[in-house]
């Protein structure tokens, strides 16, 4: 019996590792996810801290004479194949048709697109988790809430989003200003129309967890439902919620850009990546770079977020982790 307490010096005692360190170790092994995380971090930093270094105003239109002289500058790399192109080091990505600096507009657009993505994702996660937990934990609410989820899944979302944006834009713009109104409208619409998958996954997990011994033990000690949910159930459904969070950012960014692209998004003088793309489409034969940069930004952001989601799914799955 004493042998058991005597430790083998080669096999020395390691303190139990934090679960999140294990998750991080597994996440690091997924190369795509790691690159995705670095790229996403780089984009977020570039978009939010970049304006501190590149201190151009995205909305600044020079006085008329200067504007005519400076507008439609091509990006600096155009010189490589077209020696006569109008380029200037003052505007590395060129200027648009009102001589506004395109690099500054890309950064400003990215701020809005990413903020919309994060805010809409948070809203849809809150709604999805709330409905999923309520439906899974309280048997009486299960039927009605799941019918509601099915109904939402049967709605044609893009047409309804377009209609809702058009109908309520004026009203909210009057109350909160043109930019704030559209921001609130788009975030809430995207949030309200994308919670269903999260709710279904959370409900399934809660249904299984509810019958586990630790929950029964907690209930037998007289723990109120609210605390069982908050202390025992929610931490255990965190991993599916985190995975749907990453996918939610991707969906929200794409939906916002799609709305802006169809002309139902932010007002014209308020750049987002989708809006920049939409404004550039008419003259893409002359200035293809103005289409390609915002499009690339959207695609790379969404791609990196999707890879992060893929890696997180593997890292949070205890059956894969540690192998």
């Amino acid at each position: 019996m004493t042998d058991a307490t005597q430790l083998d010096p080669a096999n020395e005692y390691k303190p139990p590792r934090n679960q999140w360190l294990d998750v991080w170790d597994q996440f690091k092994k997924h190369r795509g996810a790691l690159i995705g995380a670095i790229v996403f971090l780089f984009i977020v930093l570039g978009v939010f801290l970049g304006p501190l270094i590149w201190a151009h105003d995205a909305q600044f239109v020079p006085p008329v004479v200067d504007m005519i002289k400076l507008r439609d500058t091509r990006p600096i790399y155009t010189v490589l194949w077209e020696s006569g192109a109008k380029v200037s080091w003052a505007h590395p990505l060129g200027t648009d048709n009102l001589a506004r600096d395109y690099l500054a507009r890309m950064m400003a657009g990215g701020q809005v697109s990413i903020t919309v993505g994060l805010a809409a994702m948070t809203l849809s996660l809150l709604l999805g988790t709330l409905i999923g937990v309520l439906a899974g934990y309280f048997k009486r609410l299960d039927g009605p809430l799941m019918r509601l989820t099915d109904l939402f899944l049967a709605l044609p979302l893009l047409p309804l989003l377009l209609v809702a944006v058009l109908l309520f834009r004026e009203l909210l713009a009057g109350a909160l200003g043109p930019e704030g109104g559209v921001f609130v409208l788009i975030v809430s619409l995207v949030g309200i129309t994308s919670w269903m998958q999260t709710a279904r996954i959370v409900r399934g997990d809660v249904l299984a967890l509810k019958e586990r011994e630790f929950v029964i033990a907690a209930r037998s000690m007289g723990t109120p439902s609210r605390r069982i949910v908050l202390r025992h159930i929610l931490p255990n459904v965190l991993s599916p919620i985190m995975v749907s969070a990453t996918l939610g950012i991707a969906t929200a960014i794409i939906t916002e850009s799609a709305l802006s692209f169809l002309g139902f998004g932010f007002p014209p003088d308020f750049p987002t990546w989708g809006r920049l793309l939409f404004d550039a489409v008419d003259r893409m034969t002359l200035y293809p770079e103005r289409v390609i940069w915002p499009g690339l930004a959207i695609s790379i952001t969404v791609l990196s977020v999707n890879y992060i989601g893929d890696g997180l799914r593997d890292a949070l799955d205890p059956r894969i982790r540690g192998r």
Partner: peptide
């Protein structure tokens, strides 16, 4: 497939036009 998933049609469409 990951790229096809992530590139929205309003960009891939415009890109193939260009």
């Amino acid at each position: 497939t990951m790229v096809g998933f992530s590139v929205p049609p309003f960009f891939s469409g415009v890109l193939v036009i260009v």
